[in-house]
């Protein structure tokens, strides 16, 4: 998908969220949905499979999200799937979240964790990153049990890996 079109969809989603006055909630829900799709290749392929009618794919979205997301979020996801770009939804959401953070003079920081972080932990992590890198970041947590413990923070192309999985890999390399 061309960057121009991807940015256009991201801007449209962001504008709808702002218009509904639920930017934080919608961004957060869309971010979680995007990461869930990125982790589930079969579902992502099904949403972009042209052999299925669009109404069918949109019905799947509504069935999955249902009462788990706000109506606006569900409608936005259904709209993207309805345009035939369901397969690019994770990338569109990433662009939207990054653009939203930029409107608040921040940089998106994806944090992978095995457990949900408390607000205090998010705040302290943002402050720690700012003190370490001098960058104001907006924390987006992705629940990923494969990290086992600790956190993995991605800020653009930079990765700060403090996960138990990484430590185990280092241990295995040291033994090897």
């Amino acid at each position: 998908m061309p960057d121009e079109r991807l940015d256009g969809y991201a801007e449209a989603l962001l504008a709808v969220a702002a218009a509904e006055g639920q930017s934080t909630l919608i961004e957060d829900e869309l971010f979680r949905i995007g990461e869930a799709l990125r982790a589930n290749d079969e579902l992502l392929a099904a949403l972009s499979d042209s052999r299925f009618p669009i109404e069918r794919r949109q019905g799947v979205v509504e069935d999955l999200l249902g009462d788990k997301a706000s109506a606006v979020t569900t409608a936005l996801v259904s709209m993207v799937v309805g345009t035939g770009h369901g397969g690019h939804l994770p990338d569109i959401v990433d662009a939207m979240v990054a653009r939203g953070a930029a409107t608040r003079d921040r940089v998106l920081a994806k944090v992978r964790s095995a457990i949900e972080l408390t607000e205090d932990q998010k705040t302290r992590l943002a402050q720690a990153i700012k003190s370490s890198t001098g960058t104001d970041v907006e924390i987006r947590v992705i629940i990923d049990e494969s990290v086992l413990g600790g956190l993995v923070t991605e800020i653009g192309d930079d990765v700060i890996d403090g996960s138990v999985r990484h430590r185990q890999s280092q241990l295995r390399e040291n033994f090897g």
């Binding site: 095995a114 932990q121 302290r124 370490s132 086992l148 413990g149 600790g150 923070t153 403090g162 138990v164």
Partner: peptide, 21 residues
């Protein structure tokens, strides 16, 4: 993994935040 309970996970997160800071 047998010892990664919630408290240990939070302790690991806190330790990570302290290391980054």
């Amino acid at each position: 993994q047998s010892n990664l309970d919630v408290d240990t996970q939070r302790a690991l997160v806190d330790a990570y935040i302290d290391e980054v800071a």
